[in-house]
Design a protein around this nucleic acid. Structure first.
Lengths: 341, 341
DNA sequence: CACGACATACAAAACGTTTTGCAAAGGGGC
DNA sequence: GCCCCTTTGCAAAACGTTTTGTATGTCGTG
């Protein structure tokens, strides 16, 4: 069963290839009779004809291919949602996405981008697996590009990142709303936007709640379960222990659960905990379920591709847009009113 | 900066496009002088020329594109490794991979496959996110295809799956090796190959160790943390409780940790636990770290693409191959000798 | 010295589309 | 009834490669 091409359709429909082409793409001013069009369409359908995108891409200088280059796709659990969002948005508009993992290797990244360009991708989503500032690779100059979960130093291309400050505020507000006044903050040690943004959100939420900031309630650690565990242990074993903990992420919150358990404290009865990330695997598996703030990976992925396609298809040169996505609170069972109230 | 094409190189090098083409692809019998070749190459390099894959694909009837269709990429944590393996293998051989998520929707799957085919992909990896038997979509007939983490009912295309029996045996052997004789099995309730394979592996390992199978030590539950928790609670609260638990997966093992904790039992001192999956996020975050068996997702992804490319590039029709991948034991800290020995 | 064989380079066709320019036919206004 | 305009269809060129067939010279051999 050889591939059926446009000439096969033309032959079967007793018209020229030109007419077939016109009949199948409605865009042109009616250069074909409605009846002929119907007839051609029926024949094409019948033969199972689908245009060869390689050929039409060559002719139109448009491949309907998008590249997505990102660091460490595999090692992080966020990737899935982000990519799915991007994929969905692309597919809905008739485009396909090609992902490449740079493994954070600048040299590899360079080669991958040029491979993508060789395949004539019409644009590139440059993604990072956690919110960061980046310098745009030189190879991307002149190529429509959108940043996903990253902002560029020169602000020259559109970008989307989560609103870290708001995320932290939402988390802490949930605790304050439950009546807590002594809220520990288990933060991480990396110098990344999330660290600073969430710290600011923590302080802003406290201020809003009329609670004085107490530096003694902030503990830094590596952003893993064990870091969260030691930090929480430290905070919870004090005589004047906080009644709630706001953790930098869900993994650290998991560590907090472990520390609470080893100190004989029950969550949420003795201590409330909130995280950030909404990693289903962790937040949903903990017991009780972890109340946390979701990072809108799916939505950001969608937005990035949608924006990229708008820029590609748009006629006029559009100004780059930089947006921050809201992060919704996901309530499970780790927040309750404080004990002594 | 307009794209530089082969004719630009020809002009700059003062030769014909034919010569440029020949000079750049060494495959042909030397139809070009070594000196000319060097010269052309230098000029091409200089101009930053890279052939347009769309055009060469059209001419060669080979797109150097592969499709990867899979169910639920986003919702499962395995996806990353599997896709990364596939991606790496493809990239190393000069191919690109286009992923599509069918969301387990048969209708969507159909459309996605035909989209891929329109883009002239040279082959398709049909992947599932957990080991299962599948019927191959009719659209794939005649298209080079390899199954990833799935086997087809008719065995007509090559496939790769994990060796479930061996995985379970490795896990249980680790417990027996530590001295355990009373080993509970927390299994799941779904009728999938993993359930049956791991049960068989459990029994085989017991037999090898000269331990009699005791149906009372097997408890079924949903394969989530809460399922593991209730099952483990049930097993561990018996007067004659098992000294070790083999859990269907890491999430259920996490539930076992919770049950042990609520019963005041320490892992691994009072009870040993092993899982299957090696989900870094869970196995590495638990305290103590979970000893578990890794499912070789990265390797399977690599194998699938490598095999697919061999079949595509191979001259003769190759017989389909069905292989099972070994699953290595990953030791962390959840296994110790039993208490009373 | 002449002829053939070989090395080297080029022109042209092909891959499967889309689109532009052109021609034929049909219809309406005068 | 003639002319012009509109509608409808077709032929051909173009997109950027690769490859086949052919032409030109050069060298070696008889």
């Amino acid at each position: 069963m050889a591939k059926v091409g446009i000439r096969d359709v033309a032959r079967a429909a007793q018209v020229s290839v030109t007419t077939v082409s016109h009949a199948l793409s409605d865009t042109q001013g009616s250069r074909v009779n409605a009846l002929t069009r119907e007839h051609v369409r029926a024949v094409a359908e019948d033969l199972g004809y689908a245009p060869n995108r390689l050929a039409s891409g060559l002719r139109n200088q448009r491949s309907y291919l998008l590249g997505l280059v990102s660091d460490e796709i595999a090692t992080t659990p966020f990737a899935g949602e982000m990519i799915l969002g991007a994929q969905d948005a692309a597919y809905e508009r008739g485009w396909l996405l090609m992902m490449l993992d740079t493994a954070s290797d600048r040299e590899l990244e360079k080669r991958q981008i040029s491979t993508l360009l060789q395949h004539q991708v019409d644009g590139i989503v440059y993604a990072k697996m956690y919110h960061q500032r980046v310098g745009l690779p030189a190879e991307l100059a002149g190529v429509p590009t959108v940043l996903l979960d990253a902002v560029s130093e020169d602000g020259i291309v559109s970008s989307v990142v989560p609103d870290e400050v708001e995320a932290a505020r939402a988390a802490v507000r949930a605790l304050i709303g439950a009546g807590h006044r002594s809220i520990g903050f288990i933060t991480n040690i990396d110098d990344i936007p999330a660290t600073h943004g969430r710290f600011r959100g923590y302080r802003e939420a406290l201020r809003e709640g009329g609670i004085e900031f107490d530096p003694a309630l902030v503990v830094e650690a590596v952003s893993e379960a064990h870091g969260g565990r030691t930090a929480a242990y430290q905070l919870l074993s004090r005589p004047e222990r906080p009644t709630a903990l706001f953790c930098f992420n869900d993994r650290m919150a998991m560590g907090a659960y472990q520390a609470a358990g080893s100190l004989g404290l029950k969550i949420p009865h003795d201590v409330s905990v909130v995280g950030i990330d909404n990693l289903e695997l962790i937040a949903g598996s903990l017991w009780p379920g972890l109340t946390t703030v979701a990072l809108p990976h799916y939505g950001m992925g969608r937005w990035a591709v949608t924006r990229l396609l708008d820029e590609i298809e748009g006629t006029e040169e559009a100004e780059p847009v930089h947006i921050m996505f809201d992060c919704p609170l996901i309530e499970r069972g780790s927040v309750a009113p404080p004990l002594q109230i």
